[in-house]
């Protein structure tokens, strides 16, 4: 059994600070971490390694600093880590990213029975790359997987959570699943794992190694363009009630609530 995990490096978004004047992200001192949902994807792979002796490859596209993040996945128990890094990849949107990842799988002959990715990344929050990657490789896809049920010879059974139901699907391998947090509880790295990872190498490839043409890559290969970034200033004129006026405010609120209550919207 061979498992491919797609992972991404993201800024630690909980610590993001925005420059109030320019509206841009202050990158200084910002740690890069593995996208939290990808850790759940990796954990599921690690569990399957324990139960079914799966071999795990982690694949990522990103700046060179991603090497550190990928090293952590080796420390956790991944067998192989591959980083696609090139200035030509910079500015890729979801199409260009999916294209580059899927071409790398073909060109490097990466073998897989199952591809696992997190449902989305905490920075872009698009959740599109997993599906686009799979479709470019003609792989079956199950998104929003909330529980892994079983692995049988040539298929897996998973539970998917959607708005109105829990669906259990049986999927013939090879296939891709994108997972929600509930599929697994990520383990913490151990000291021995960290030591062991020092002797392993993160494989790094650039566009030329993969024989890819610049026209399809990075910003040039991306169909979408960001044309404007701005701060939202949606402000209202707030009528503040405090101290001895508070009661009047409460009466006001009660009046509004009585006016709208019970009118159920369809």
């Amino acid at each position: 059994m061979k498992i491919l995990v797609l992972a991404k490096q993201v800024p630690d978004t909980d610590k993001v600070k925005i420059d109030p004047l320019t509206g841009t992200m202050i990158r200084e001192g910002l740690d890069a971490v593995i996208n939290p949902l990808d850790l759940h994807a990796l954990e599921l792979a690690l569990c399957l390694k324990e139960t079914h002796r799966a071999q795990i490859t982690v694949l990522s596209m990103g700046p060179m600093s991603t090497e550190m993040v990928l090293r952590d996945t080796l420390a956790l128990g991944a067998d192989r880590a591959i980083l696609l890094s090139d200035s030509a990849f910079a500015g890729s949107d979801t199409w260009a990213t999916s294209y580059t990842l899927s071409e790398a799988v073909k060109k490097l002959n990466i073998e897989y029975d199952l591809v696992i990715c997190g449902e989305k990344a905490t920075d872009g929050e698009t959740g599109q790359v997993g599906v686009e990657f799979a479709v470019l490789l003609n792989l079956p896809v199950i998104t929003y997987v909330s529980r892994f049920v079983s692995l049988q010879n040539d298929s897996i059974v998973v539970e998917r959570t959607v708005e109105d139901a829990y669906e259990t699907w049986k999927v013939r391998l090879p296939a891709l699943i994108s997972v929600l947090r509930s599929v697994s509880e990520p383990r913490l790295p151990t000291l021995s794992g960290k030591k062991m990872s020092l002797s392993k190498k993160v494989e790094i490839y650039n566009a030329r190694d993969l024989g890819l043409k610049n026209n399809d890559l990075g910003l040039t290969g991306s169909p979408t363009r960001v044309v404007k970034v701005y701060n939202t200033k949606l402000s209202r004129n707030c009528q503040l009630y405090m101290g001895k006026d508070l009661n009047q405010g409460i009466q006001e609120v009660v009046k509004i609530l009585k006016n709208y209550k019970g009118s159920v919207r369809r």
Partner: peptide, 14 residues
């Protein structure tokens, strides 16, 4: 995203 991949076009999420 599946359609966007097939049609080789851009998609903006959410």
């Amino acid at each position: 995203p599946a359609l966007a991949a097939r049609l080789r076009t851009g998609l903006t999420a959410d």
